[in-house]
Design a protein around this nucleic acid. Structure first.
Lengths: 202, 202
DNA sequence: ATATTAGTTGACCGTTCGGTAAAGTCAACC
DNA sequence: GGTTGACTTTACCGAACGGTCAACTAATAT
């Protein structure tokens, strides 16, 4: 990685961490630069605006999420139901760890930005929409497996089930963040099985 | 209402409208004052801080929501399932109207603030937690009615079902806001019946 | 070796931020 | 009719905001 790429990466990493643990508006370009040990002029050499930086942060977030959570959790070595269980366990453990580290359950980094920025920055809104689409596709994939294996009691459209599952997950993370209690994830998320009609998840 | 109370009310109303349509951070006390036609000094006569104003806005929001949405939607003139259907219709119509008025689906005013502010202002987080509790209680009430009427196929703890329903609702509103598409509410929210095991809601 | 490009530095822009303070105005009560 | 306290006005604070700019240095290619 070239010198410039390293600098850019530090900016992306600092921005991701700071914005996730606080919010888009609460973190200024100045603070991101200070954290990344980069001067402000350099920031604007790599990014035309704070908004553009954020879009790249979201892209990075998506890649990390797919690689570190979605792919391992939904690997096809288990039954669809067990994959969901594994996913829930990952999500729970992650929020527990965040609470230890920051004192707060931080919830979903995409959901946080979505609600803060959707009415203020159209390119950010569109980007988050795409990220949700990525998760959604993974869900569709598992649900198709489940239906093929006869483990799906529900005969609704799989696209709608996947969206419902995504919505439910986001909602549970919101409640967990609001209560600042990761246990909510463990108690509530398994009910996603009822929502999508998956056998033996409860 | 005394002159002072009127001023305070204008501040609360302006703040509520501006913060809901944009966000907490994007709206300054200056702008709130300008919108309410109140001088800044007066603002700080009524509220010690922007945070305190927000807590009162949230309280007002709760009262309005209970009176205008929850009480009429969950009135006991219909079966529990039909009450949920009516609630969904209200939520849908409201977001459609917001989109016409502002160009954006605004989602849930509590959820929006929760995700933006939970890690930044503890008194706001606590207040939102309480608001969720209020909705939650209404849900518990309907679910008890449903179980008494034998319309609840699920034998889980009603508190957990109510929380799951709340989470799902918030998640659907988040997705609708991110996609800026109120139709998602109509398509997705009825599945709450599957989640809580309510007969004949789909 | 030199020219070009990529990256860095730090000072600077106008504006807005949340919040303060003091002087002034108004209505109500004695 | 004067006093009191609620409310309003206006000017102001230091700090931070997102973004710009021109001068500088480091690395690369010819």
């Amino acid at each position: 990685m070239s010198r410039g790429q390293q600098t850019k990466q530090r900016l992306l990493d600092s921005a991701q961490q700071l914005m996730y643990s606080r919010s888009y508006s609460d973190v200024g370009v100045q603070e991101i630069c200070k954290d990344a040990k980069v001067q402000k002029g350099s920031f604007y050499h790599f990014f035309p605006s704070k908004s553009a930086l954020t879009v790249e942060v979201l892209e990075q977030l998506k890649m990390q999420m797919i690689e570190n959570i979605l792919l391992p959790a939904f690997a096809k070595d288990l039954t669809p139901a067990k994959r969901f269980e594994r996913f829930i366990e990952y999500a729970y453990q992650y929020q527990v760890q965040l609470k230890e580290e920051y004192g707060y359950v931080l919830g979903c980094p995409m959901g946080n930005i979505a609600l803060e920025m959707s009415t203020r920055d159209e390119t950010i809104r569109k980007k988050v929409e795409l990220l949700f689409e990525s998760i959604f596709e993974v869900f569709v994939d598992v649900l198709e497996d489940a239906r093929a294996a006869g483990e799906l009691e529900n005969n609704s459209d799989i696209n709608e089930l996947a969206q419902a599952a995504l919505a439910y997950g986001e909602g549970v993370l919101m409640l967990a963040k609001t209560r600042n209690d990761p246990e909510l994830i463990k108690r509530l998320l398994p009910k996603v099985g009822d929502l999508i009609g998956l056998k033996s998840t409860t």
